[in-house]
């Protein structure tokens, strides 16, 4: 039951991030989603006696719930990014696209037969939905900052898939993936600063000079 509740929170946070207009709220949604994924990791670790997954949960809490949201809020503040998002498509269309992502994932993942061997595999369609919603966000948002949020959302979806399918990939790999995520956040911050210094805005719209 608790597992289903966490899964519902993950899905809802992804969907709300599509319809919410304030960037700060989206950071909190990301943190909430990450916390729910960490919760899933802890629960699966207890239910299926896979202690290593508790370490994964701890990594997610440390990085995705605390450090990255903190870093994102600093970027918002330091670069004085306007609080509202710019979208290429309307909120209503985004909400519908979110539903489309869910249907697509169920249609693609549902027929995979060997999933029956994996108890937590029911989480997989949700994970794929989160990945697709992240992709949609990255593709349709004008602010470079929102594109980073989209990518972080996609990564969360893949983490959920990893927990559901593998019960943890082993400490070394998870540390490696976490380190990559951390460096990605740092590098993005660096580029956002450079973009602000150079173009005086972080709208990805200004990035149009290279074509052909």
């Amino acid at each position: 039951m608790a597992l289903e509740l966490c899964a519902a929170v993950v899905l809802l946070a992804a969907w709300l991030s599509l319809v919410h207009r304030r960037l700060e709220a989206q950071i909190y949604l990301y943190a909430t989603q990450s916390a729910a994924i960490a919760g899933i990791a802890f629960l699966v670790s207890i239910l299926y006696a896979t202690p290593l997954l508790a370490v994964t949960g701890g990594l997610i809490v440390g990085l995705n719930v605390v450090v990255i949201p903190w870093l994102l809020r600093r970027i918002l503040r330091d670069l004085r990014i306007p609080p509202e998002i710019n979208m290429l498509v309307s909120v209503r269309m985004s909400a519908l696209a979110g539903l489309g992502c869910l249907l697509l994932s169920v249609a693609v993942i549902g027929p995979l037969t060997p999933l029956a061997e994996i108890p937590a595999a029911g989480l997989l369609p949700i994970a794929v939905t989160v990945v697709l919603i992240g992709l949609f966000t990255t593709a349709t948002r004008r602010k470079a900052f929102s594109q980073v949020l989209g990518i972080l959302g996609m990564e969360n979806g893949v983490f959920l898939a990893g927990i559901a399918l593998t019960y943890g990939l082993g400490l070394l790999l998870e540390l490696g993936i976490a380190a990559n995520l951390f460096v990605l956040a740092i590098v993005s911050r660096l580029f956002l600063h450079r973009m602000k210094d150079t173009f005086d805005t972080v709208d990805a719209d200004v990035l149009r000079s290279l074509e052909g």
Partner: peptide, 13 residues
């Protein structure tokens, strides 16, 4: 440079 920032951002994303 503006062009290299654009190129690297696209590349990264």
């Amino acid at each position: 440079t503006p062009r290299s920032i654009e190129a690297s951002w696209k590349y990264l994303i």
